[in-house]
Design a protein around this nucleic acid. Structure first.
Lengths: 353, 353
DNA sequence: GTGCTATGTGTTAACGGTACCATGCGCTCG
DNA sequence: CGAGCGCATGGTACCGTTAACACATAGCAC
């Protein structure tokens, strides 16, 4: 069904090699011969087989991107940034959703090796991803971690300053008078959870407040986890006056639980979180959050991995730490004047559908 | 750097063929031989080269997915559904953002052919994508359109009933008393725009209302387009009392323009749109919308394309039309009682980050 | 005429895996 | 005891492209 160089060669009355020369720029081919080959290419609707080329050149032209969940706006925007940079450099993106599952992650990593992706951008499941990543390291596979680091595993990394961001959020809550603050957070084997909890605790410590164990709820960083955790929080007596959620999805789940109890934010309880809920701020600026330059995660990670591919495979790990900004809105009952909402609020421009 | 079957064969003292047998299940290999090979595989950290396999078998194990913009939640959720189904069938997903650009779309399509993706799921740029798609049709490339059809091009398709959905939205606006209703919509070469405008016009006609040309604003279906269109609408005299936006992104842009003028929805102007703004409804159910079963677009499309790959390449085109549901909320000033908000409001469950 | 270069084109082998067929061995059976 | 069978394994060729080299022809200098 698909024509090959040999089919084209036969039709044009030349050798396969000459066809190859023509489709690769035509240098060193007589004009008339080239014309003949080009006509044959058109007539047979020939498209060179990229798989065969990849086998010859050991270059697949593919980058892998593994994220827990592409439907989380944080990751979809990030992937979008990575894809744009990759495309401009002539690379395709293989997208994988690990679903936070170590086994699935391992499978995808194997797949990257097997299909000879030239590099990988990955938001790892957690510290236990180490084994999965070491398989790549052994092969000097160009690799960039995003969002989360992995304990005891050193490689290129793009992350935000979670400690500082969490501290800001907590200090803000303290600043507007909250004292009983609960935290919805992932288990400690995820670096962002560790960092954000550390930042939170540091802030509480400066205020001289001890956080009781019952106020630290460990759960999955998704809507279901936030929902369940908030249900527990709402049963505490005395009830916390504010909740710090580890990310946007947990905050949404928490919000859902709050609404179902018939409570109102911030009148009955305050709620803040990491990561902006994209698009939402436009419609109804509400949640006070720490916002990360999401798209930049993707573009920087792609640049780093492309740089590794381009040659510097052996160099020392590079660590890019992006600044996270506090966006004060309404959800913590702040008595401060509301922050101005610049029309281009987040760091990325509106995009076409 | 990467070991090959021949390296493993040498180490195990067998032929390459035997290694191949072992890594493919080991049928017809003596137990002891298999052990030896397996040991060599482990020691050399051998991973079979998927590119070479692909060349032999003409099976890349890859599906292409082309959408205008993965950061639009409609598409990210759709892609997520497609990826899940693809993975379960042993396929990888190559993700492409066409950015609504015909040239880029063409490039991606070429790439799919070149890299021998086994099938393609595509939300085409518009009717002018026809030429791009015909290149695939000529090759009997398994192909499924999502969201949008292409005039004069017949192939497998998953779409929602835009006509009926738009009619519902318009009838709802009419039902609560609006008469001067403006439409923000894409150019007519996008099928969803045609269908939604047709549904809207049909509803207006039943009410005996003529829609003046000034009330139909053609623009790009993104936030910037919605923003610009709404600015124009707000300058009309008399000002329309309601606005119908072609999708979620235009609605967000429109909302932004409204807020910047210091106006309030629905008091000063009503706003409804197609596509729910994911996650948003949880936080603050507000926009009255027609919601599409987003994830199902992806899963169904993947199933259709896998089905084509599995053999039925020649069969007649299949057209799946999904029902779109009206979700009445607050943004049109309805005097009806608000619709109940079931906790699992949209069709998909919360997902892990 | 010989030697040299420049140019255009063809031949061969290789990338890494596997389909296909050949081979060798031990065994059963008439 | 040799034909015949089944099993384990090896050899060869091929998927489609291209790198490396070989070759042929023409032009030019000496």
């Amino acid at each position: 069904m698909n024509a090959t160089v040999r089919d084209v060669a036969r039709k044009a009355g030349v050798s396969a090699m000459t066809v190859s020369r023509v489709i690769n720029g035509g240098a060193g081919v007589r004009l008339e011969t080239r014309r003949r080959v080009e006509r044959a290419v058109t007539e047979l609707d020939f498209v060179p087989n990229g798989v065969a080329r990849g086998l010859m050149s050991s270059k697949s032209g593919t980058l892998g991107v593994i994220v827990p969940d592409i439907s989380n706006p944080f990751f979809s925007i990030l992937v979008r940034g990575a894809e744009t940079v990759a495309r401009r450099a002539g690379y395709r993106v293989l997208l994988c959703n690990s679903e936070g599952d170590l086994g699935l992650e391992k499978q995808y990593v194997q797949d990257m090796i097997s299909h000879r992706a030239e590099g990988l951008i990955i938001a790892p499941v957690g510290d236990r991803s180490k084994a999965n990543l070491q398989a790549l390291e052994r092969r000097r596979f160009p690799l960039v971690l995003i969002d989360r680091s992995v304990a005891g595993f050193d490689c290129d990394l793009v992350q935000a300053d979670s400690v500082a961001g969490a501290k800001m959020l907590a200090l803000h809550l303290l600043g507007v008078g909250h004292r009983r603050i609960a935290v919805i957070i992932e288990p400690d084997n995820v670096s962002t959870a560790r960092d954000r909890l550390a930042g939170f605790n540091a802030a509480m410590k400066t205020a001289g407040i001890k956080v009781p164990a019952s106020h630290v709820l460990r759960t999955t960083a998704d809507r279901a986890g936030g929902y369940a955790a908030m249900q527990q929080i709402l049963s505490l007596d005395p009830r916390p006056s504010a909740v710090f959620a580890v990310n946007n999805m947990t905050a949404l789940g928490a919000m859902q639980a709050i609404r179902e109890r018939g409570l109102v934010v911030p009148k009955d309880i305050a709620l803040v979180c990491f990561d902006d809920v994209e698009h939402l701020a436009v419609l109804s600026p509400f949640l006070t959050v720490v916002n990360q330059p999401t798209e930049m995660f993707g573009t920087l990670a792609a640049q780093l991995v492309l740089d590794r591919i381009a040659g510097d495979t052996g160099g020392p790990p590079r660590r890019v730490v992006l600044q996270a900004d506090l966006l004060v809105r309404e959800s913590c009952g702040s008595k401060l004047p509301p922050a101005p909402e610049p029309s281009g609020k987040t760091n990325h421009k509106p995009r076409g559908q």
